[in-house]
Design a protein around this nucleic acid. Structure first.
Length: 423
RNA sequence: GCGGGCGUCGCCAAGUGGUUAAGGCAGCGGCUUGUGGCGCCGCCAUUCGGGGGUUCGAAUCCCCUCGCUCGCCCCA
């Protein structure tokens, strides 16, 4: 077929689904408002360097997944692959930290050039929060609880909170050294993917899917043993606070966030119902990022929820089309004009009004009125136009009963008309 | 980037070498140009993702290509 279609991995959200998106977004705004977060909106396009410096050049996101191109001024630009870097950039650019801590939320499309599959698209949507200038372990837990409660409030079940600590930069460096040594001693026993990673990204070998490698790793040194006092105390504090909030969690020592800027608390909320892309929410602490991007050392923590994955979990539990209150059946030149005017007036009264503008017999127009689920039909034909009357007909109730479902109202009697339509 | 599955009307589909490519839903028109939901009738793929080949003959076989989908890697 020569038919034009959307780019691979770019998905349309059709009217039947947009309803559910609105419902979810509304629920989220409400939660953010109550938790004291404010919205920030940043551009979709940023200077490539922002992501190189924040996410890390060795990561897959930067290495092979960015939509990068040169603009007409020959600047290297990138469609944002995630939200945190942009938010931090904006906060620094506008000096928001001079006004104290920041509790921000954002939402919008992100872009990653990957092979699409279930729960993964090239343009996808995230909604997330970023807190800057808050370094108590309690703030980790508060932020996690906002995500947890949010997902719970949408009626999701079977969620698992997975938790880990990545320690400080120094913790990881010493651990990394030890791990590389340990791996090099067993180099020949590793799978081919892991062999390539020994020097580049040894921590990720811990997450290898190869069963032999996994078996081997049972005896490998673990990051837990390399944590400094501050790191392990913090981790304990986080766990205690989660228990106090009665949020269940599972420690997953293999949970290593893919982006360089994470440290200390790392977490994911997963669902067994999502197939192989099980993470619906992921986040963690990133105390080094602000300085990395040129600000004064400031702690940060945040998370992001993948909207498409969330929608998959919700099924169609929150969908449901909207139908108009009134369908305006009209026929005849004079009647059409009156109907057009009436439609506007009723809309001014906050009623949802659909005007039949395709003409045809009354029978045809009623068919359409019925199909769109309107509660009321208002009929204006030649007779009504002449006599200054409106004919109302209830389309839902009283269909089979003997109750009257048709009423005649003078078009000058606005109050009676509205009373009917709102009943 | 690498594997597996699949591609027949807007949607769900039958059809696996032989004259006009079933059927259902949706849509449109009519019975009914002053009244909907039911019913009945009619219309709705010169064409089977695209290109090439084999054959007297292909949606059906072969090759190439494009797309979708699931998985790997990685992430939300």
């Amino acid at each position: 077929m020569n038919q034009l279609q959307s780019l691979r991995g770019m998905v349309d959200i059709l009217p039947t689904q947009s309803q559910q998106w609105h419902a979810v977004e509304l629920a989220m705004r409400e939660q953010f408002y109550r938790a004291g977060f404010q919205e920030i909106r940043t551009p979709l396009l940023e200077v490539t360097d922002l992501f190189l410096r924040s996410i890390g050049e060795a990561t897959d996101v930067v290495g092979k997944e960015m939509y990068t191109f040169s603009d007409r001024g020959n600047r290297s630009c990138t469609l944002r692959p995630e939200g945190t870097a942009s938010v931090v950039r904006a906060v620094l650019e506008h000096g928001l930290l001079n006004q104290g801590q920041q509790r921000l939320w954002y939402s919008g499309p992100m872009f990653r050039y990957e092979r699409p599959q279930s729960g993964r698209q090239r343009q996808f949507h995230q909604i997330g929060v970023e807190c800057l200038g808050m370094d108590s372990p309690l703030s980790d837990v508060e932020v996690i609880s906002v995500a947890w409660d949010l997902l719970k409030s949408l009626g999701l079940k079977d969620l698992v909170l997975e938790l880990n600590t990545l320690g400080t930069q120094e913790d990881r460096l010493t651990y990394r050294k030890q791990l590389i040594e340990w791996l090099q001693d067993r180099f020949e026993l590793l799978d081919s993917d892991s062999k390539k990673r020994v020097e580049i990204n040894p921590l990720r070998i811990l997450d290898s899917k190869d069963p032999n490698t996994q078996a081997l790793l049972l005896d490998a040194p673990t990051l837990g043993n390399f944590l400094c006092n501050e790191s392990s105390e913090r981790f304990t504090a986080v766990q205690l606070a989660l228990k106090a909030l009665e949020i269940p969690f599972k420690i997953n020592p293999r949970l290593v966030r893919g982006l360089d800027y994470y440290c200390h608390t790392a977490f994911e909320i997963t669902s067994s119902q999502l197939g192989s892309q099980a993470t619906v929410c992921g986040g963690g602490r990133y105390d080094g990022l602000v300085r990395e991007l040129g600000g004064t050392s400031t702690s940060g923590i945040g998370w992001a929820i993948g909207m498409e994955r969330l929608m998959m979990l919700l099924g169609d539990s929150m969908s449901g089309g909207s139908s108009p209150d009134v369908y305006l059946v009209n026929r005849g030149d004079e009647a059409e004009k009156k109907a057009l005017v009436l439609a506007r007036r009723l809309r001014g009264e906050r009623l949802a009004v659909q005007l039949d503008s395709s003409g045809g017999s009354f029978g045809k127009q009623f068919k359409r009125a019925d199909r769109c689920g309107a509660s009321w039909a208002i009929v204006i034909g030649d007779n009504e136009a002449r006599s200054g009357q409106l004919r109302l007909k209830s389309l839902h109730r009283d269909r089979d009963s003997s109750n009257a479902n048709e009423f005649i109202v003078p078009d000058s009697d606005w109050d009676i008309l509205l009373t009917y339509l709102r009943s």
